[in-house]
């Protein structure tokens, strides 16, 4: 009986808690958390832009945190508006320029106390009227979350994914803003 109690208290219960914690709690990168705040003084282009994103993926219940295309698109659009990179953001097929952001890699650690996520995205800006390529740039970024940010591994990983996306959007918009259109 003492042995059973010992197994229950010291082995089975913590193992079950750990397994459940690791197995079923992944959540996607939060759109709001991917928006970089103030990017500093940026040049405003007096044109409208439409934003497209691809290469992201949804987060399954048993998966690790991913960035969905829709959330990445919204985060970029909000960052464009709040930092006044373009005069306006439009939807559909309108717009003077088309900004495409394609996630090409999102490298996530599997285990660790401090998680660093590396991201690469292909940023391209096309002039809609003649489909000419104005900018093509590979942007690499990284984000780190430590045990101080969250003790829960899946949350820590999500925070690192969001930080890498934030850094990527920040670098991308600075590059776009610096263009002479």
């Amino acid at each position: 009986m003492i042995r059973q109690n010992h197994i229950c208290k010291h082995v089975a219960a913590p193992a079950a808690a750990l397994a459940l914690l690791l197995a079923g709690c992944a959540s996607p990168a939060n759109r709001q958390a991917m928006i970089p705040q103030v990017l500093g003084p940026l040049q405003t282009h007096p044109y409208s832009v439409r934003v497209q994103s691809s290469g992201g993926s949804d987060t399954g219940a048993l998966d690790s945190s991913n960035i969905s295309d829709a959330d990445l698109k919204s985060a970029i659009e909000e960052a464009v508006v709040s930092n006044k990179v373009f005069k306006s953001v439009v939807q559909g097929k309108d717009g003077d320029y088309e900004l495409s952001v394609r996630v090409t890699s999102l490298s996530k650690p599997i285990i660790g106390f401090s998680f660093t996520v590396d991201m690469e995205a292909a940023w391209s800006l096309l002039k809609v009227s003649d489909r000419s390529v104005v900018m093509r740039k590979s942007i690499k970024s990284s984000g780190t979350a430590t045990a101080g940010d969250s003790l829960v591994g899946v949350t820590r990983l999500r925070l690192a994914v969001e930080a890498s996306a934030r850094d990527n959007i920040s670098q991308g918009l600075q590059a776009v803003s610096a263009l002479k259109l």
Binding site: A15, G24, G60, L62
Partner: peptide, 25 residues
């Protein structure tokens, strides 16, 4: 608890499949 452990361990590795490709326009 052991059953939960085993279920979680098994199911966490069985169901995720992704195959995607993207090309610059």
């Amino acid at each position: 608890l052991l059953l939960l452990c085993i279920t979680a361990a098994i199911t966490s590795g069985c169901a995720v499949n992704r195959a995607t490709a993207h090309i610059d326009p």
